[in-house]
Structure formats: C-alpha cells, structure tokens
C-alpha cells in the first residue's frame, strides 16, 4: 500500500533521508526533554542487564564450567549477545507495540503517509534509554576481553567487529518477523516476546547445554547461536559441539541476511493481510 506511493511527489530538496532524520531527531529531542526521567530510565535498563548477569554470576558461584565455557568465557558470550540484543531493542524493540497500534487503529495513519510503513514505525519511537543495557554489556565485554586468554590476530579483531553488527541485524530481523506475525494474532505481544526475548535469553548461554533438537532450533531455525555463541568459540579458539562446529561463527553475516529476507517476507505478508480497524 504505502510502498506503492512514489516518493517523487514529495519535495525532495534534501534527499530521501530527510523525513527520517526529522522523525528521529524529534524522538530524540522529546526523550532528552526530561533529563532526570531519562537518566532514571537509563539506570533501569542498566538494572535489567544486571539481573541478566546475576544469573551467570550465581550459577558460576557453584560450578566452574558450563557447556564448555568457564566464567570468563561465558562473560564474553553474555557481552556479545547482550550488546547485539540491546542495540536491536533500542533500534526496533518498540515494534512489539504493533498490537496496540492495530487495536487503536493508529496504524492507518502510518499507511496514509508516502513512506514505507516499517521505516516509519522504526524511526517513530527509537528508545535511547535501552542503551543502559548496552553500556553494561560493553563494560562486561571489556573485562571479558582482558581476562580471557585471547590472542589478538586480525581474524579475532574482525570477528569482534563483525559479530555485534551481524548480531544486531539478526535480532532486528527477529523483531520484524515477530511484528509481522502480530497481524494474524490479536493480543499476541507476549507470544512475540517469547520469540524475541526467548532467542536473546537462549543466545546468552552456550548452545552446547541444549539437547540436539533445541541446538538445531536455536542455530538453524532461529539463528540465535550466530549472534554470540559461535563467534565466541572462534574468538576463544574452542571446538563447537556436534552439528554446530565453531567455523560456523564466520557465517553470522550470512545468517543476518537470511534472517532479514525471512523477516521482511513475514512483515510484507502480515501488512498485506491487514485490512484496517474500521476507524
């Protein structure tokens, strides 16, 4: 629908990006307007990261190796997984509010504007407060890089650069796919959360602890293992468990592209299915 409208009808003096720049900057201005409130939200997001890390801390207070990784290794895995997920959550996490838009009929307003609906939705509510969790993950990453026995070769550094980018892209694609499914499910936001947050949770643990069907599910169906676990194995120079060897870690960009294709197909099918709230 909205995609069919051509952009040439608009005054495009400053290029195609200008409406998005305007949207994003208005969101950022409104979020910075109440500074103390924003600071508290950042702290809250940081706190969520602390809860997540507490789990690993408590588990490792009584054991020393989990799924082939020690505490330092798991901290690296946690950091990579959480950096990607929190960045995806910051960029597109608000897509899980689609059920509210559908119920209230506010989605129709987006359909009327001459810009792709998904791009509008993404730029309309970027949540900078979620950077709190990213900040915690980056801190954990720095410590993990120091305490793990890592030989910094060009390959390791390339992995450390590629992994968060590919991981963020994969989680973004999962959010988009989950949002696309919402067009069929009414009141299904929690279901979508189990898909996105569940993948994020699974990705912060070594896939080796799962049974084979779950390992295959979280590697080849939902590519959670590509966001952190497989690259972590490569960085730490460890072999992978059966069916998911470590060298797969180099393929996280491929997993990201495949996820995006699948996510966009689901999103487009969902949007075509949408018939309006009658408002």
């Amino acid at each position: 629908m909205a995609e069919l409208t051509t952009h040439t009808e608009r005054p495009t003096a400053t290029g195609w990006a200008s409406p998005y720049v305007a949207l994003v900057s208005s969101r950022l201005r409104s979020q910075f307007a109440y500074r103390r409130s924003f600071a508290l939200d950042l702290l809250g997001s940081f706190g969520v990261g602390v809860i997540e890390f507490a789990e690993i801390y408590v588990i490792f207070s009584s054991i020393s190796v989990l799924g082939g990784l020690d505490f330092a290794g798991l901290a690296l895995l946690f950091a990579l997984s959480n950096i990607s997920f929190s960045l995806a959550d910051l960029l597109v996490g608000h897509l899980d509010r689609i059920p509210t838009y559908l119920r209230a009929g506010t989605l129709d307003a987006f359909l009327l504007r001459p810009l792709p609906v998904l791009a509008q939705l993404v730029t309309s509510d970027i949540q900078l407060r979620r950077f709190g969790r990213t900040a915690l993950s980056i801190a954990v990453l720095v410590v993990a890089l120091v305490v793990n026995p890592i030989t910094f070769t060009p390959a390791t550094i390339a992995l450390l650069v590629i992994t968060p980018i590919a991981g963020t892209a994969i989680f973004c694609a999962l959010f988009v796919a989950a949002a696309g499914v919402q067009f069929w499910l009414i009141e299904g936001s929690e279901l979508a959360n189990s898909f996105t947050y569940g993948s994020s949770y699974a990705s912060s643990f070594p896939t080796a602890i799962f049974t084979l069907p779950m390992r295959v599910l979280f590697t080849f169906v939902v590519p959670a293992a590509f966001t952190a676990y497989l690259p972590t194995l490569l960085i730490l120079d460890l072999p992978g468990p059966a069916w998911t060897p470590a060298w797969l870690g180099w393929f996280s960009p491929v997993a990201a592209i495949v996820s995006w294709v699948a996510g966009m197909l689901i999103w487009r099918a969902g949007l075509r299915h949408y018939t309006g709230a009658g408002s």
């Binding site: 588990i59 799924g67 929690e190 279901l191 959360n193 189990s194 569940g198 799962f210």
Partner: peptide
C-alpha cells in the same frame, strides 16, 4: 500467549539448570 512464553522460557531454563 502467557503460557507459551512461560513454556519457551521453561525449556531454556530447564536446559540451563540441568547443564
């Protein structure tokens, strides 16, 4: 939807505690 969410997380958590 809540039950599905709890079950999905149960699968992951059970794997973690067993591990």
């Amino acid at each position: 939807a809540g039950a599905v969410t709890n079950t999905v997380f149960g699968l992951i958590k059970a794997a973690i505690t067993m591990g």
